[in-house]
Computed example of a mutant assay.
Amino acid sequence: MPHDDGLCSIGELAERAGVTVKAVRFYSDNGLLPEASRSAGGHRRYGPDALGRLRMLRSLRALGLPVREVRRVLDEEEDGADSVLEDVVAGQLRELGSQLTALRWREAGMRLVLECPPGERADRLRLIGAVTAPPNTAPLARFWRAWLPPRMPARATAAFLEVAVPQPPDDPDPVQVLAFARLNALVTRPCPGAEQPQPEAHKAAGTRGPAVLYAGLAQAYELAGAHMLQGHEPFEGAELDCFVDAYASAHGSRDTPAFRSLLAGQLAADPRIDRYWELVADVITAPGGPQQPTPGTAHDWLFAALAAQTAAAAG
């Protein structure tokens, strides 16, 4: 019970708040729970407001907020505002989300190792051991930056990376974890850029050529992807026209039958990164869901349409 002066001891305060004396002492020593005074014997004394502040402290700490954030909230509360509380809780939710994602990746990785044949476990461990949880996509972005034309504008590069670098799912299954690990291994092997030279058809002339090409291809891939999701076979249409126009515009040419024939031959001879796109499709496709199109598979769909058209025209 409070004394005649309205103050209470550390033990009385702890009992009323339902915490330990050690906790009250910790908060006091860290400046979170100011003392009103000290008794003649040097014992801590707390004022009437201490109980409410201590209960708030306990609640904030129960949410897992670190001491420094609790201090911010309490200081803001004294000023009669709660914007800091909103910011702190929102930040804590983001942090928890990241931790949960990491745990889900680790769980799926463990299932991957547990469920594979014993003879494959060493290889699986090596693959997933090279990937952080949640995984980092920076190696994939570096791979593409080395592969893209050197004159590519920063904005165009960023737009391409947004579609070429898959975002790891928050709740993956073992297949997605294995696909991402293999993707990471693919792009981090020695000199991947040297092994995958820029296709001749992508070496657009002029300073604006690369940006024009990749912007046009992105539009064509999006159009083709919609048909792929519906199970449509490659065909001649607006999607193919957009695809060809991207190359023609980038090279300062016109879309003619002769240009389409030349483009089809170039694309057939150009180096490919099929394995990359196969793994990307596995990463972004939800378990049990339809296979999601990628820029690589959309390119193949459009090229198949172009090859069929030029072959028919030649025949």
Rank of each mutant, 00 (worst) to 15 (best):
R25H: 14
Q219H: 06
S98P: 00
C116F: 02
L33Q: 12
A179S: 04
G288S: 05
L125M: 14
S249K: 10
M1Y: 02
G209Y: 01
L178W: 08
E115R: 15
T297G: 02
R94T: 15
V24W: 13
G288P: 06
A17P: 10
V84D: 04
P139I: 05
F243P: 07
L125T: 14
A264H: 10
P234F: 04
P197R: 04
K22W: 08
G296F: 00
A281S: 15
D300C: 04
A185N: 12
L65H: 13
M110L: 11
V177Y: 10
R182P: 03
E236G: 03
G97S: 12
L161Y: 09
L183Q: 04
A205M: 02
L223T: 09
Q266K: 13
G52C: 03
A130Q: 11
A50L: 07
E120D: 15
D170P: 06
E86M: 04
R55D: 06
A205W: 00
A122I: 12
L183N: 09
D82C: 11
E120F: 01
D173R: 10
R121L: 11
R106S: 09
L60C: 13
Y214E: 06
E86W: 09
L63H: 07
G31V: 11
Q291R: 15
A305E: 12
P257D: 01
P48N: 05
D270S: 03
V70S: 07
P135M: 03
V113R: 04
V177P: 14
R104A: 14
D173Q: 12
I10S: 14
A159S: 07
L114I: 09
F143G: 06
L186N: 10
G252V: 06
A130H: 08
G209V: 02
V89R: 10
V24K: 10
R155Q: 07
A17T: 08
V88Q: 09
P139M: 05
G64H: 08
A50W: 02
H232S: 09
L183E: 09
G231C: 12
L7G: 01
L263G: 09
W301L: 01
R38Q: 11
F243R: 03
E78I: 07
L302K: 03
G206E: 02
Q291M: 07
M110R: 08
G6Q: 01
W301A: 05
P290L: 03
G216W: 08
A156E: 04
R61F: 11
R45K: 14
C116A: 15
E236M: 00
D300A: 13
V89W: 12
R126K: 13
E78N: 05
